[in-house]
Simulated scan of single mutants.
Amino acid sequence: MSISIRQNEASALRLTAVAAGHELALDMPAPQGEGPDPHDYFDTALGGCKAMTVLLYARRKEYPLETVEVKVERDASRERAGVYGLSVTLTLHGNLDDAQRQDLLSIADRCPIHKLMTQTEVEVTTRLG
């Protein structure tokens, strides 16, 4: 998979990323721009992955999950010290019993992006084109 990113205007921080044929706006938060910024997409990847993982697992187990909402809150106050905090709240809608709810909570922490962020060493190579 390849993602391309282009600057929209020579003097602006507004960018467009193209992933799987879909355009995504990139910017800086106010006052420099209007957002969303790259951190927002990083955080969104985690929340989206947890939601999809929970939904797919609930379908496979035939749990009565109707919908899921995910809220991701960021604490970047210690990012320069090497700590980037994300707090995730799942809201599960449907006639689920306590055991099913706990099972879905547990599976959410096993989503691929959660694992990537917490259990994998990521290697990044940057070169000139």
Rank of each mutant, 00 (worst) to 15 (best):
S4M: 04
I5F: 02
R6S: 14
R6A: 14
N8T: 15
S11A: 15
S11W: 13
A12Q: 11
L13D: 11
L13R: 12
R14N: 12
L15H: 11
A17F: 00
A20M: 06
A20K: 06
A20Y: 03
H22W: 05
L24H: 05
A30F: 10
P31F: 08
P31G: 01
G33F: 00
P38W: 14
D40T: 07
Y41Q: 10
F42H: 12
D43I: 14
D43P: 08
T44K: 13
A45K: 10
L46T: 05
G47Y: 01
G48T: 08
C49T: 04
K50H: 07
A51Q: 07
M52E: 15
T53Y: 04
L55Q: 10
L55G: 03
E62H: 14
E62R: 15
L65A: 04
L65Q: 03
K71T: 12
V72W: 01
D75E: 13
A76F: 08
S77F: 01
E79D: 11
V83Y: 12
L86F: 03
L86V: 09
S87L: 10
S87D: 12
L90S: 02
G94W: 00
Q100V: 01
Q100P: 02
Q102D: 15
D103H: 12
L104R: 00
L105A: 15
I107Q: 06
I107A: 01
D109C: 01
C111H: 00
P112H: 10
H114Y: 09
L116H: 13
M117V: 00
M117T: 02
T118A: 10
T118H: 10
T118G: 09
Q119M: 12
T120D: 15
T120L: 14
E121Y: 00
E123C: 11
T125V: 10
G129N: 13
